[in-house]
Design a protein around this nucleic acid. Structure first.
Lengths: 213, 213
DNA sequence: CAAATTTTTGACCGGTTGGACAAACGTTAG
DNA sequence: CTAACGTTTGTCCAACCGGTCAAAAATTTG
């Protein structure tokens, strides 16, 4: 069932390394907009500027491309959470975590959508990573946050649901981009939209929504 | 390009009405877990307990099923927001809006995922609805919320981003269900998970996250 | 019951897709 | 130059998929 995509030391030539990157970049584009089943090898090959058999010389199965993409993705995707530091001011830490996540939604929307697509369909290809790597990290950081709460440095809540909410709100701007755009109308140039969202989320998570009085 | 799925009064027999419902129910199940392109007519037909040609007797094209599903969906999906009442206590209104949305994520996760799937892929089939019906409603309600803010009844923020955040956080529990489950572990029976989320979101949106001191 | 109508099915079709393969092409080292 | 190795491509195939069609089966109507 679970075949190793890359066994030990695959010993790659220079061309192989380059072409594999090219393919992964193209596949990210195609997979993130059409989903796994909705994407064809031909599409990816064309986006990478090569023929289908040529692509299959570098990745023997369509699923291998997707798997490789997912493995890399999870690392960069969780990087901001990894940086959440036990030491340092809690509110500052959370504020910059939120901002980093939002920046990622802005700068890497394809990665976000690829991930969302996979989860939506039941995470058939990355379930083990969720239950392993992901859960471990989240539990660890949730406990950090819990420590801050016990120390009275931030209000008490469920840290797990807090993390989920930060994920949900930030990634929303990448995953549901067309909807956001449809509702707000075309972006009026610059980082206007981004700054609005950043300001809102900071207020929501840091100050809270309630009457000043 | 845009063919009417159902023109005026299609005059349906009893059997047609029943079977069409059966197909739509089956299609909801299949589409929401595999996406549009990832689903086959055969899968839907089997889930509905009939043969493929038989299904195609009731819906002539695969896309017709999806379109019909989406049209119905948007109505029920936006119902909670429609109920947001100008009169009545703002915080109470918002609190029950959030709760209703969360209940929908719990009770109709397939609908949520179907919608998410469509938006993720650029909303190719429902763009007009987003720019029309959806935008109109959101703008209207955003102005209601703006009124509350001007009256000093709730803190000032961007109402549009507030609505997005409520959507994002509540729907997250349906769309990213497998991830939530992977991180939190198996649900310990009953509505425990749901109540945790409800409590958290109420605190987040109503009380805010900040030290009591 | 019998005719008319609706529903169901098996067989079929053209196009697409993931993938195999061998032959051709290119490159490099001896 | 040439043998060895890495790269690229044209061709092919079997499975799948959306959809058609005619004929059989069931149902409704008179």
């Amino acid at each position: 069932m679970t075949g190793a995509v890359e066994s030990s030391t695959p010993r790659r030539t220079r061309i192989q390394l380059e072409k594999r990157e090219l393919i992964l970049e193209a596949a990210l584009e195609v997979f993130s907009t059409n989903g796994f089943r909705g994407s064809t090898i031909d599409q990816i090959a064309e986006a990478a500027g090569m023929s289908k058999p040529n692509l299959l010389y570098y990745f023997r199965r369509k699923e291998d491309i997707h798997k490789t993409l997912m493995q890399r993705l999870l690392d960069t995707w969780l990087a901001p959470l990894r940086e959440l530091d036990d030491i340092g001011d809690p509110l500052t830490e959370l504020r910059s975590y939120i901002r980093r996540k939002l920046e990622m939604a802005r700068d890497f929307p394809r990665e976000s959508r690829l991930f969302a697509n996979e989860i939506l369909q039941g995470a058939p290809r990355i379930m083990p990573m969720l239950e392993g790597e992901l859960k471990t990290l989240v539990d660890e950081k949730a406990n950090v946050i819990k420590g801050w709460m016990r120390a009275g440095k931030i209000a008490r809540t469920d840290p797990w649901h807090l993390i989920f909410s930060i994920w949900a709100t930030t990634q929303h701007y990448a995953d549901f981009d067309v909807q956001v755009r449809a509702v707000l109308g075309p972006d009026r140039g610059g980082d206007g939209r981004f700054e609005d969202a950043a300001r809102f989320l900071e207020q929501l998570f840091i100050d809270g929504l309630k009457p000043k009085g």
